[in-house]
Amino acid sequence: MLATPGSLPAAGQDMHWAYETKQDGQRAVVYLPGDGGVTLRARSGEDITATYPELRALGGVLGRTAAVLDGEVLVLDEQGRGDFQLLQSRMGLARSPGRAARRAEQAPAHLVLFDVMRLGGDLTGQPYARRRQTLESLSLEGPFWSTPTALVGHGEEALRATRASGLEGLVCKRLDSVYEPGVRSLSWIKIRNMRTADVLVGGWVPGKGRLSGLPGAVLVGQRDAGRLRYVGSVGTGWSQAERAGLARLLRAAETGHCPFDSVPRAAEAHWVRPRLVGEVRYSTRTRAGLLRQPSWLRLRPDLTPEDSAADLPQGRSPDLP
């Protein structure tokens, strides 16, 4: 079952919803046949059990009781938050058990459980509130797995808490909703915490197909101790007319030299003098300071390159702890 992007329920409906932290990991359905074994499958259906050998012990925690659970595999950072960049070093190793075992020692996975679809029998037709009660009764807390609390009501406070803690966001779930496998349901609403930043455009790459002749993406940076540090490629957020207008500005600013302190890996890149200031929206930053899931908001003609993006602290991004 998948969540639909949206916003908090109306205040009058708040107590009819539960709120869970949105995790930044790999979704996994956990099959416990009751014989001590365990199988993990990704959203694609791929068997990813061998990728996370530290989760094999989960197979014996319910004894002979068969169950199917829903959850998310994370790799936690020093603050105990899911770090997708760390998780990427663990993914795709199902056919390399030796490498998977070594990576498990270096960056152990943690499975967050948030639903139960089967326990002896089928529970998908039961309301979320009852399924959640059943899940919590299993007391699935271990060295590499846990069942975080779901908060009923108080959605505004829950969302503020995720923002204050630097977490990815919130998932809102109707207490009376059934489990709909394979459905992106309006009974589950996901809210992603997004940030904004002012950036300088230092280059662009051509678009393909209907975007031929227009910028497919712009390459952006921020000042870091007087240098322009590359922070990412932004390819969404414009209408066709806005993209055409941006193309004219970029061509007028073209230069033969890369303005970034290190040249980004960008095939067919065109460099421009970093005079255009833009505002972008993004979710988080990677450990290298790159913007994750960036989208364009607007040009900032009211800002100059000198006063738009204050120099970043040396070697750090402004929103990293």
Rank of each mutant, 00 (worst) to 15 (best):
L219H: 03
K208D: 13
G209Y: 08
A225Q: 15
R184N: 03
V183I: 14
A244V: 13
L214S: 05
P206E: 08
D176H: 01
E254K: 13
R229P: 00
V231Y: 13
G182A: 10
G182V: 04
R227E: 14
P181Q: 06
E242M: 09
G213C: 07
D224R: 12
I189V: 11
L214N: 04
G226L: 09
P215A: 01
K208Q: 15
S212Q: 14
S177W: 02
D224V: 12
S185W: 07
R248Y: 10
E254A: 13
G169W: 10
R251P: 07
C258A: 06
S187L: 05
D198C: 04
R174E: 05
E168A: 13
R174K: 12
L250R: 10
R223M: 14
G245L: 04
S185H: 09
S239L: 11
D198R: 11
L250D: 10
V231T: 14
W238V: 10
D198P: 02
G207C: 06
R227N: 09
N193P: 03
V183P: 04
R195I: 02
L214G: 08
A241W: 06
D224Q: 15
A247G: 03
Y179R: 00
Y230F: 10
G207Y: 10
Y230T: 01
A197L: 12
R251E: 14
A241D: 14
N193W: 00
E242W: 01
R243V: 03
Y230P: 00
V178P: 09
G207W: 09
A225M: 13
N193R: 05
T196E: 15
C258L: 07
L200H: 05
N193C: 13
R163A: 13
P215T: 00
L250F: 08
G256W: 01
A164C: 09
R163V: 12
L249C: 12
A217Q: 06
L186F: 13
L219W: 02
S212T: 14
A161K: 03
G237Y: 07
E180M: 10
G202Q: 01
G221R: 06
A244W: 11
G216E: 02
W238S: 06
V183S: 09
L211W: 12
I191P: 05
R223C: 11
V201M: 08
V220L: 11
T236M: 04
L211V: 02
R210E: 11
T196I: 07
T236A: 12
N193A: 12
A241L: 14
E242P: 02
G209F: 08
K173D: 06
G221V: 07
E168G: 02
S187T: 09
L246M: 14
K173W: 04
L186K: 15
A197Y: 00
G166F: 10
R195H: 11
R223E: 10
R192T: 15
L219R: 03
C258G: 02
A241T: 14
R229Y: 00
V171D: 11
G203M: 04
G209H: 12
L219A: 09
A197S: 09
P215N: 00
G209N: 14
A244M: 12
V218F: 03
W204M: 13
Y179A: 00
A247D: 12
H257C: 10
I191T: 02
L219F: 00
G245P: 01
V234T: 01
